[in-house]
Design a protein around this nucleic acid. Structure first.
Lengths: 122, 122
DNA sequence: CCGTAATGACTACGGATGTAATCGTATCGT
DNA sequence: ACGATACGATTACATCCGTAGTCATTACGG
């Protein structure tokens, strides 16, 4: 189950998380243009994701409709945690400190995070 | 310059960031036991990091002392930003929301982050 | 019915990665 | 001086990844 999603595969997943089920062609069309992929490339990636049981497909006539089996939520949670563990000893505050330091924060971000924390304390 | 550091290479870097310069053998000894690597494996990784100019070596007698050329700070910043961009549209607050939600932050974590934000607003 | 296009399956292939063995040489102990 | 040893350099090799081409089959237009 805990199969790894590669970078290219992730691009496919983002499409399917955004909308599903989709045919292979639909997926290919929705891949951001910055990735200049042939339709075949997308099909290969769908095949690999299938093999890893990260997505599933059901026949629709002579082709397939693809849908995610893994929730974006869970993927994102896993990746975030891995980063936090690997680079920040599993603690969130150093991560925040780090990014905050590098001026990744707007005033709105700050307000949002503060609200969040207030919520947590309550 | 912007050469990628693989996962195995990262383990080597952590050792060198913690203490340097070190000989290949010193590095091998300091690799966490969970990675059950032969000394040769470590040397291969040092060689690859050298090739990518992520570390440097200077002769010490008939062997080398290795030291990082890239600061951990910078590496960590890059990785954090990549994650944030890839999964959270480049915004920090959803990341915090996510991790906060999934895992109890200690009161201390909360306090630390709040202090940080207060600092930023000032 | 027949050629053509669409579609999934299979195959390809260079580069990165994880993990090491082997080789050549310099050194150290005796 | 000689054999054992310690090192770096070179080579190995299976797997994964990015990117795609080719093949077989089926449906569709004419």
């Amino acid at each position: 189950m805990a199969e790894r999603i590669s970078d290219a595969e992730h691009a496919v997943m983002e499409v399917l998380w955004d909308e599903s089920p989709l045919t292979a062609q639909d997926v290919a069309e929705r891949i951001p243009d910055t990735r200049d992929w042939s339709a075949n490339t997308v099909k290969t990636l769908l095949g690999r994701l299938l093999a890893k049981s990260i997505i599933a497909h059901e026949a629709e006539g002579r082709r397939y409709l693809y849908r995610p089996l893994v929730k974006r939520e869970d993927y994102v949670a896993g990746e975030s945690r891995k980063l936090m563990d690997r680079l920040f000893g599993g603690r969130l505050s150093p991560l925040v400190a780090h990014l905050a330091d590098r001026d990744a924060l707007t005033a709105q971000d700050i307000a949002e995070i503060e609200a969040l924390l207030k919520e947590l304390k309550a």
